[in-house]
Each structure stands twice: as structure tokens, then as C-alpha cells.
């Protein structure tokens, strides 16, 4: 299998995230196959790939929302896959932003941002509110601290969710398709906030379908397919000049959604057609 993974010359603990020989299977269904990736502090890495390629599972393994089947993961100097690790303690340092926002609907916006600060970090109420307000300002939501999440648009909710993570002062942030559940006109405001974070030097690992964002903001793009890392490099290479046929055909379809003509769709469904494209290309 042709891959262009980064060399592992340095020790795992020296990176923001180190993933070594990670495999994950749900029963017989293998989702991740022997993945190794290092992400350095301050890097913005976009993970792209077709649905079912394992990119979300990879991201969720990093903060152990999914338990790896084998392999090792370090976040900073802490090995997440060590059975003795204090997982709650390491997770405080990892921000996580979900596709479905997952704000706490029974709490007002301000309380969404303060609850973990007071109960996990042990900050005083006053300090937590101050931090929360500062981060609401960062995402442009300073005026909505008394709203309930259900009173906000999807884009606003996702910005609040980012502010909630930021309020824990994380060392790095994970984004799991943060704009996929949004109406198209609301995507921009969330991407703008993420771009701002990238500019401030936040370490970010982002699973996304936003190629324009990946191209403009990411330091590095990882293309995954079938549980493998197929290409890994600067966006100008992976998106601008992909080497692997699978990357090319994926990008071709994402960037030109109308490329598949109606008459090309098989009676068995469009997936067979896509499988044909892959089989023709990758082998």
C-alpha cells in the first residue's frame, strides 16, 4: 500500500500528538489499519477522505472516545493508551468540537462555558465567568451569554462549543466535521473562528470536507481511505498536486459534485460506481 507517512525519527513524547501503529476494529469491521502520525505543536492538520475512511474514528481515538484495538497514542508526554493514564486529566488539555455541537441544552450559554472550569479545573465562579466572557468575545458571541442553546442558530451553537473548549485553555483542539451539520450560509462564521485560532498558533486536528479551508489554513493535509493514510503532506501537494489515484478521484468528486452523470448511476446504487472509480485507479 503506497503511503507517504512522516518518518518517526523523534521520540513520541516530543510531539503534540503521536499516533503509532494504531488499529481499530468494530467487531470484524476494521476501520483503522496501522496508522502512524505525528503532529507538532502549532500545526494545523486537516484530515480528509470519503465517508467510512476512518478519519472520524482516528480523531476520536486521540482523546479516547474510541478505544484503540492496538497501537499507541501520546498527547504531549502522556500516553493515552497506557492503562494507568488519568484520562480525565489528559482530556482537560484536549479541546473537542463535535459535528452536532453537543452543547448542554439545560444550561445557558455562560453556564455551558463555566461548568467544566469550576467542576474540573476548580476555578472560582468569578474567574470562570471572566474566562468564559473572554472566549465568547473571541468567537463573536459576547452578547448571547444568557441564551439557551436551542435559541441559537447552528453556526452560533458551534461557535459557543468552540468557546466552551477554549475556556479550558487546551493545548490542542480536535474538530470532528465541525461544519457538516450546518446550513451552507452558516459554515463561513465557524470557519472564520477556526481560522482565527489557527492564526493564534493553536494546535488543531480537523476532520473536514471543506477543501477550501484545508487548502488555505492547514499546514498539512492527511488523506485517508479504507482505514489507511494514503497521502500526508502540505495542502499544495495533497490537494493541489495529489500523487495517488485515490486522492485524485476523491478530490475530483468533492470539487466537482456534478461529475457523475445520472446515466452513470448503477441500478445497485452510486456506491458501486464509486467503487469502480477506485478499482480502476488504485490498482
Amino acid at each position: 500500500m503506497p503511503t507517504t507517512q512522516s518518518a518517526h525519527a523523534t521520540s513520541p513524547g516530543a510531539h503534540a500528538i503521536s499516533i503509532r501503529n494504531l488499529s481499530k476494529a468494530f467487531g470484524d469491521h476494521v476501520v483503522l489499519r496501522d496508522i502512524s502520525i505525528d503532529i507538532d505543536p502549532g500545526q494545523v492538520v486537516c484530515v480528509i477522505g470519503p465517508s467510512g475512511s476512518g478519519k472520524s474514528t482516528l480523531l476520536r481515538c486521540v482523546n479516547l472516545l474510541e478505544t484503540p484495538t492496538s497501537g499507541q497514542i501520546w498527547v504531549g508526554a502522556d500516553e493515552m493508551t497506557d492503562p494507568d493514564v488519568d484520562i480525565d486529566k489528559v482530556r482537560r488539555r484536549i479541546g473537542m468540537v463535535f459535528q452536532s455541537f453537543n452543547l448542554f441544552p439545560h444550561l445557558k450559554v455562560l453556564d455551558n462555558l463555566t461548568i467544566a472550569q469550576t467542576k474540573v479545573l476548580g476555578r472560582s465562579k468569578d474567574e470562570a465567568v471572566e474566562v468564559a466572557r473572554r472566549n465568547l468575545g473571541r468567537v463573536g458571541m459576547a452578547d448571547r451569554e444568557d441564551a439557551f442553546p436551542s435559541q441559537l442558530s447552528g453556526g452560533q451553537q458551534q461557535r459557543i462549543a468552540i468557546a466552551r473548549s477554549l475556556s479550558m485553555d487546551p493545548e490542542l483542539m480536535l474538530f470532528d466535521e465541525p461544519t457538516s451539520a450546518l446550513d451552507p450560509e452558516l459554515v463561513g462564521e465557524v470557519l472564520a473562528v477556526m481560522k482565527g485560532l489557527a492564526g493564534e498558533g493553536m494546535t488543531m486536528m480537523i476532520v473536514t470536507h471543506e477543501m477550501g479551508f484545508a487548502r488555505e489554513v492547514a499546514d498539512r493535509v492527511v488523506f485517508m481511505d479504507g482505514g489507511y493514510v494514503v497521502e500526508d503532506g502540505h495542502p499544495s501537494e495533497v490537494i493541489g498536486n495529489p500523487k495517488e489515484q485515490r486522492t485524485k478521484s476523491f478530490l475530483h468528486r468533492v470539487l466537482n459534485p456534478m461529475v457523475i452523470e445520472p446515466e452513470e448511476i448503477h441500478p445497485d446504487g452510486i456506491h458501486d460506481h464509486i467503487a469502480d472509480i477506485y478499482d480502476g485507479g488504485a490498482r
Partner: peptide, 8 residues
């Protein structure tokens, strides 16, 4: 998942 991700 959101609560656990915040370290709770």
C-alpha cells in the same frame, strides 16, 4: 462525550 471530553 462532550462532558467527558471536557475532563469530567
Amino acid at each position: 462525550e462532550a462532558a467527558r471530553s471536557l475532563g469530567m
